[in-house]
Design a protein around this nucleic acid. Structure first.
Lengths: 324, 324
DNA sequence: TTAACGTATGGTACGCGTTTCAGAGCAACC
DNA sequence: GGTTGCTCTGAAACGCGTACCATACGTTAA
């Protein structure tokens, strides 16, 4: 393989000058520049980025970790980050952790070992002290609320999102509202549950333990939830659901059983996935791509030693369709 | 930053021995090994992977390119590749091309510049000669049919998949069948189009140029397609659609306009995405994660100089629901 | 006229770990 | 006793590009 030394010889200049040409340094006279470019062409020179990275001490790569790549939330998040990377000329190293702490450590090592200039955490199960330890090796951005003081975060304000849905349902006259969420133990889950019950107390809505479901993620789950709901003697007039897919399952089953939506049961979803349009589901739009974009921009600024706010909230919006 | 030289000094051995310890080389006596490990611990030594990569001439990173990360097909593909990477101890560098040829070249350079050991192309618009040029710099696997002789491919057998759908429609008595696909210039697009028209000729199905659509990807696109279809004086009795989302859009609009599915228009989708269940769409199930897995395994074998078959087909299955 | 500054170029150290080669020590085998 | 072969260790070269410092020349300002 040819390297800059051979180019330098052929063009009768020093390696330094070759490097200057490659990096568009202004202090190179036109004739030398041309000679170098000519030599590069004739010898089919290809630079070796590993040498560049070693020498410069940075790679222009950022690491992104998510539990599951093919979850719609995370794939949109990654897409947003990917756009920002293309904009900034960064590459994206992606790691699927499956919520496994060993996999997470594996990923953190990429920063430690200087493979990446910074990290974006889509979601993590590692405790704050692990993150604090890693923050000494480079910049880290979390895309969820984080207890660690040493890393900045950007996240979607789920509490206000839930309020949007509940306000809307109350305006429509609903007083009996059920809740259906995904993982009750995740940060998002705890947050949503808490916000829901706070709201309920504040407005003294009626409540029944049968109106609560968790661990629901899929359309199938939604169908199950609907079956349970429809067998209740005393059922809610509206359901707030933490996932468009689950909500779609509920609507699907309602239609099948002849339960009219929204007259007999109003349903709201979460995420504004494409599916929500098809089943005419009122839902809460999360700016997920924007979340990814913002995370990448923040990281970019941090890497270039600009200050950024340590917590950044993004707002949601309620999208009214025919399910409420 | 401490490096192996300092470790060597502290442990009173040579850099070579330190390197041997780090790489678990067997020919190191226990006492020296312990001394090195002790020094590493005391000095908080962290290896620099950029130096390792430069020295070894490889990075254990593979590059993955897709047009759009948050398209369900590609996010599942990436997830499959990600699983395989975790299995093999490889990292994954992800690039979103947006079907832009400059972005594709940008990505190919990662291989040229030795940033990655090999490439997986989710889908590409680059002509075969570009791929051939790149293949001299490293191993490349395509996840769609490729005209390039120099790269191996693994793909889902769209021809037989399309046949499944068409056979089914013919059995139902359909003779007027339209086609709607995504990118007509991608390998998949060319393949599907070709297969469709071959089939059509073979069974002498009627045909009209208005029954063909391409560049359709989203639910919105499907709605547009439906509107155009329904305004035709002479329209097909069935549509074969290359995406569940587009198909869902068609069904959505049909329902809205009171066109009965499948009586007035039968529709088949592609992918068996969750949405197809909700709209009761007959569709073709693709083993997408397996595709990603296989692609990564093939690349792994190629990188380790094992031979692999140059073309690998995966089979599909037809899922009958109520849209046909 | 001289100091000061901008332009242009090269020498060399630096970033850091791996690998090849040479050699020493020691055991086993003929 | 001599040869063969394995275990263990280190010196030095190698992979490759960047950045700092020194230097030389031309120009402008004082």
């Amino acid at each position: 393989m040819t390297n800059i030394f051979e180019i330098a010889q052929k063009a009768k200049v020093s390696r330094t000058t070759v490097s200057r040409v490659l990096n568009n340094h202004p202090y190179v006279k036109a004739d030398k520049r041309d000679a170098v470019l000519q030599a590069i062409k004739e010898l089919h020179y290809v630079p070796n980025f590993n040498a560049v990275h070693l020498s410069k001490g940075k790679t222009n790569i950022i690491g992104v970790m998510v539990p599951k790549i093919d979850h719609p939330f995370f794939s949109q998040l990654i897409a947003g980050i990917g756009d920002a990377c293309n904009r900034h000329g960064y590459s994206l190293l992606l790691h699927q952790s499956n919520n496994d702490s060993n996999q997470e450590l594996e990923f953190f090592n990429k920063l430690k070992y200087k493979l990446v200039d910074g990290l974006i955490l889509g979601s993590t199960i590692s405790p704050p002290h692990v993150l604090d330890e890693m923050a000494i090796y480079g910049k880290i951005i979390s895309c969820e609320v984080s207890e660690s003081k040493s890393i900045a975060s950007v996240f979607i304000d789920h509490e206000s999102g839930l309020q949007l849905a509940l306000d809307h349902l109350r305006e429509q006259g609903h007083q009996h509202i059920g809740l259906c969420i995904g993982n009750a133990k995740s940060g998002v889950g705890i947050n949503r549950k808490q916000s829901f019950f706070n709201y309920q107390q504040k407005y003294q809505l009626r409540w029944h333990a049968d109106w609560y479901f968790d661990g629901k993620y899929t359309i199938e789950d939604g169908i199950q939830v609907a079956r349970q709901l429809f067998s209740l003697p005393d059922r809610p007039t509206a359901m707030v659901v933490g996932s468009d897919y689950v909500a779609a399952g509920i609507i699907y089953e309602a239609r099948k059983q002849g339960v009219r939506v929204p007259d007999s049961l109003a349903v709201t979803g979460f995420d504004n996935q494409p599916i929500s349009k098809v089943v005419e589901l009122s839902t809460i739009h999360q700016p997920i791509k924007e979340l990814g974009n913002t995370a990448a921009d923040l990281l970019y600024n941090l890497i270039h030693s600009h200050d950024v706010p340590s917590t950044n909230k993004l707002n949601l919006s309620f999208i009214k369709r025919n399910s409420t």
